[in-house]
Simulated scan of single mutants.
Amino acid sequence: MTRQTMTDPGKKNTNRVVAAVCVAFFGGMIGMAYAAVPLYKMFCQATGYGGTTQRAAKQYAGRILDRDITVRFDANTNGIPWQFQPVARSVTIKIGETTQAHYSATNKFDRAVTGRATFNVQPELAGPYFNKVECFCFTDTTLKPGETLDMPVVFYVDPDIVNVPELKDLKTITLSYTMFPVEKNKPVASSAPDSTTKVSDTEANLGG
């Protein structure tokens, strides 16, 4: 009996320590979850990881190679009632040449909806060499019911891409955007249960 009385307080103290550690760990995990998206965004933009493009501070004014490359444009929606598509499916430019492409978004819902786009480049190795001077990605955009918005993207392909052995013969790059509803519009997402809708070639406007 004496031994049990002496050890019970020790067990209680141990349990309290374990509980405190668990609470601290759980709280830390929640904090990391909230920080994960912006940190991952910063990491990808800095390194080009996962086909993430680079952000250029200003329009490129360097050398332009006498070599063509075709950039294809892809558009997807995930849980947002918008029609989202590229105005032209592709463009052929010189490597190093700055050009502008356009996407179009139309709100098909009966109230205002806010969306935000993420993006990537294929092949992934080309990400660090695909530089966006102007882009609508990671920017909250609100459209009224039936409203249509032109969404330009200005970019160039860095001539250094030809120095990469795996990319020296690359002919085509695909720039892909996926539009999501922002957090405050979760009820809108639930009203459109189809997970991801990809714009097909026949649905897109092939005007260019």
Rank of each mutant, 00 (worst) to 15 (best):
L125A: 13
G31N: 09
K184T: 15
A189Y: 04
A112V: 11
V188C: 10
A204W: 02
A101P: 11
P38L: 05
I95V: 15
R55Y: 11
M42D: 07
T98Y: 08
F26D: 09
Y40A: 13
W82R: 02
R63G: 01
D68T: 12
S195W: 08
V133M: 03
T92Q: 01
N205D: 12
D110A: 14
T202L: 00
P181V: 15
S104E: 12
T114A: 09
H102P: 02
N76C: 05
T92M: 12
A61T: 06
K58H: 05
P86S: 04
M29V: 09
S195P: 05
T2C: 06
R111D: 15
T98E: 11
Q4F: 05
D201L: 06
R55D: 14
E134P: 15
M151I: 03
I173D: 03
P128G: 04
P159M: 01
P9N: 04
G27Y: 07
C22T: 14
T52L: 00
F26C: 14
M29K: 10
E134S: 13
N205V: 10
A36D: 15
A112N: 12
T202G: 05
K144T: 04
F130P: 07
Q4W: 11
T7I: 15
G115C: 11
A56C: 04
T114W: 09
E183P: 08
G31T: 13
R63W: 00
L143I: 14
D66L: 11
K144W: 00
T47Q: 04
R89I: 05
A46G: 10
F109K: 10
I161S: 02
Y49C: 01
L167C: 00
L65T: 09
A46L: 06
K12V: 09
T99F: 13
I30N: 07
Q83M: 03
R67G: 07
S90T: 03
E166Q: 08
K41S: 05
K41P: 02
Q122S: 13
A204S: 10
A112S: 13
T202Y: 01
H102W: 12
P187D: 07
F84N: 00
T53E: 00
P38F: 03
G127K: 05
E134F: 07
A33P: 05
L143V: 12
Q83W: 03
A88E: 04
T47N: 10
V71D: 13
G62I: 03
G79M: 08
K41V: 15
L125M: 05
I80K: 09
G50A: 01
T52V: 00
L167E: 03
T52Q: 04
C135A: 10
G31F: 10
